[in-house]
Design a protein around this nucleic acid. Structure first.
Lengths: 215, 215
DNA sequence: TAGATTGTTAATCGATTAACAATC
DNA sequence: TAGATTGTTAATCGATTAACAATC
């Protein structure tokens, strides 16, 4: 309907707002002004108001924002009021770690299956879910309404697996493989490149040794 | 010396350049123009040249860039020519997964220790490194020239542990705990908030269902 | 009503892209 | 030399911040 595209910069900040509002809610805080939130989160009040107004007015002049309401609204914007079935491809350390992480469940992401090509891992139990062989991937995805796949395999296999996923109706890939995936328009890819993140840390670390940052 | 501060936007792109150049190098490609690289990486040639020129001229008019040379230079900028000792705090699934990840070693990040407060985990072996109790943290850090700590503990403990780390000379924290750390000026923090990443995926996923993206 | 604070427009800042002169 | 491609300046675009009128 209205098609005003929201920038990824704004989207990227929503989870953090959501986190702070959740904590305020749990502390029993009822209302908060953009000014107070800005001090808490160390961003400008202006940015907060601009960000929220991308989605319509959540506040009230002279009062501020209702914490519970704002929290719920941002949750809806993020799609956390829906549930999604996901599978993990790659039952190595990282794949198993993600399978065991309970908090995703709380946000509506349901862990349905985990796959690995290594026969030694097949049958292993990850939080009540048995590791399956890669051969069963296509059938499983189609028969269980899986829309998210978590890719935790080495980069060599990732591109091929991504193709298989897309061909069988996957809508989104959470990609931990260290490679850029090319997918058709309409399929979402979110990359978590851990070594890129570590390199950024490394840059800032070595930079700081040489020259003290100006302020 | 020269203090022209490089923007984090540029720094954030360096690891990706580094990855592509590494692959080109391995394929035996000797030179590449910003135009060719731009097609490969799906960014503008203009951006590539601007980015590289933040650090001085790496190319040659009429020729392009020497792949091997450029790869090495970016590696140096990222500080990958140095080594860093790191410890992992939290020997849960994620902590152990990161400890087992061999590629960090290749980039000069040396896994020296892993800690957990759970006595059931203490003594466990993670790639040749035994899990230590939290009580040994301070001494270990100081005696082993550790400058990076990887935080893979629940958010409740993270702030307290971060303080202990900073007080004992840690220079950088790679933070997987779902909380914002406040550290003194000069200490680097790089956050990997997995659930934030998943929420971004969720947003784009639910958005796409409703309205086809305009282009 | 007066005071507070949003929603929103305008100004500023920074990052990206385009253009082209310098030069290999 | 002529052609190619960088390095760099200028133009554009987008995101952030400031300001203030609208309104609860």
């Amino acid at each position: 309907m209205e098609a005003k595209e929201i920038s990824q910069a704004v989207i990227g900040r929503l989870p953090r707002y959501f986190r702070y509002l959740g904590e305020l809610k749990d502390q029993g805080v009822e209302r908060i002004s953009s000014q107070e939130l800005s001090e808490l989160m160390q961003v400008t009040a202006s940015q907060i108001r601009q960000d929220f107004n991308n989605f319509g007015g959540f506040g009230q002049q002279g009062y501020g924002y209702n914490v519970k309401y704002l929290y719920d609204e941002i949750g809806k914007i993020l799609g956390l009021d829906q549930t999604h079935n996901f599978v993990i491809i790659g039952a190595g350390n990282l794949g198993r770690a993600l399978g065991n992480y309970l908090n995703f469940e709380r946000r509506g992401f349901l862990f349905r299956g985990i796959f690995d090509q290594n026969p030694a891992l097949v049958g292993m139990d990850v939080r009540g879910v048995k590791v399956r062989p890669m051969e069963e991937l296509e059938t499983f995805i189609r028969e269980n309404q899986i829309d998210i796949a978590v890719l935790t395999i080495p980069k060599t296999g990732a591109v091929g697996v991504a193709d298989r996923l897309v061909q069988n109706g996957i809508k989104a890939i959470w990609n931990f493989a260290h490679v850029d995936l090319r997918v058709p328009e309409g399929i979402q890819v979110e990359n978590v490149h851990l070594s890129d993140s570590l390199m950024k840390l490394s840059y800032n670390l070595s930079r700081y040794g040489k020259e003290q940052k100006s302020n």
